[in-house]
Measured scan of single mutants.
Amino acid sequence: NCLEGLIFVITGVLESIERDEAKSLIERYGGKVTGNVSKKTNYLVMGRDSGQSKSDKAAALGTKIIDEDGLLNLI
C-alpha cells in the first residue's frame, strides 16, 4: 500500500494505460481518486490534452503535478 492515504486527480488522456486502469491501480495500492483538485489533493496526474484549469488550481494549492510515468514510478 505505497499510496496509502494519498489523493489523486487524473486529467487528460493517458498514453500507456486507460484512465479506469490508472484509477484501479491507485486504489489497489491504497490511494484514492477524486474528480477535482482541492487542498486535500496530493497529486495531479496530467495526461495529453489536459485542461488548464486543473493545473492552475493545483499550482495555486501547491499540489504536486506529475505525468503518467511519475505515477508509475510512485508504485
Rank of each mutant, 00 (worst) to 15 (best):
T63D: 00
G51D: 15
L25K: 07
I17N: 07
N36M: 11
G51T: 15
I17V: 09
R28E: 08
L61W: 12
M46I: 11
T34Q: 15
G31T: 02
L72Q: 06
T41M: 05
R48F: 02
E4D: 08
S50R: 09
E4V: 03
R19V: 11
A60L: 11
F8E: 03
T41H: 00
K23G: 03
E15Q: 12
V37K: 04
G70Q: 10
N1T: 06
V37D: 01
K57E: 12
R28F: 08
F8W: 01
R28V: 04
D67I: 00
D20F: 06
N36D: 11
D56E: 12
T34C: 12
R19H: 11
N36G: 07
G35Q: 15
D56N: 12
E18A: 14
G31S: 01
G5S: 03
L6K: 15
C2F: 14
K57H: 10
S53F: 13
N1E: 06
I75Q: 05
I66F: 04
L61A: 08
N73Q: 14
L25V: 05
L74K: 03
G70C: 05
G51S: 15
K64E: 09
K57T: 13
I65W: 03
L3V: 03
N1I: 05
G30C: 03
L74V: 03
Y29P: 02
N36Q: 14
G35D: 15
D49E: 11
S53G: 13
D69I: 12
T63Q: 05
N42H: 07
M46K: 13
S53D: 15
D67Y: 04
S38Q: 04
M46W: 02
L14I: 04
A58F: 06
E4K: 12
L44E: 01
L61E: 08
T41V: 12
E4F: 02
K64S: 10
G31V: 00
V13Y: 09
Y29S: 08
K23H: 07
C2Y: 11
L14R: 04
N42I: 01
V9C: 14
K40P: 00
S24N: 11
G12P: 06
Q52F: 10
K57L: 12
K39W: 08
L44C: 06
S53Q: 13
G70K: 07
Q52E: 10
L74E: 01
G70P: 00
G5D: 05
G51L: 13
G51F: 11
C2M: 10
S50Q: 07
E4S: 08
I7F: 13
E18V: 03
E18H: 11
A22C: 13
C2W: 05
T11A: 11
G12N: 06
L71N: 01
A22I: 15
I26M: 00
L71K: 03
D20Y: 08
E68W: 14
D49I: 06
C2V: 04
V37G: 01
S24D: 11
Q52N: 13
C2I: 07
L6Q: 12
V9N: 04
L71R: 01
Y29D: 03
A60M: 12
R48W: 02
K40S: 12
G70I: 04
E15S: 13
G35N: 15
T41E: 00
F8G: 03
K23W: 03
I26H: 00
V37W: 06
A59W: 07
G70H: 06
A58G: 07
S24A: 13
G62W: 03
E18G: 15
S24H: 12
V45C: 02
E27A: 06
V13H: 15
Y29E: 05
I26C: 01
G31Y: 00
G12Y: 01
D20P: 10
V9R: 04
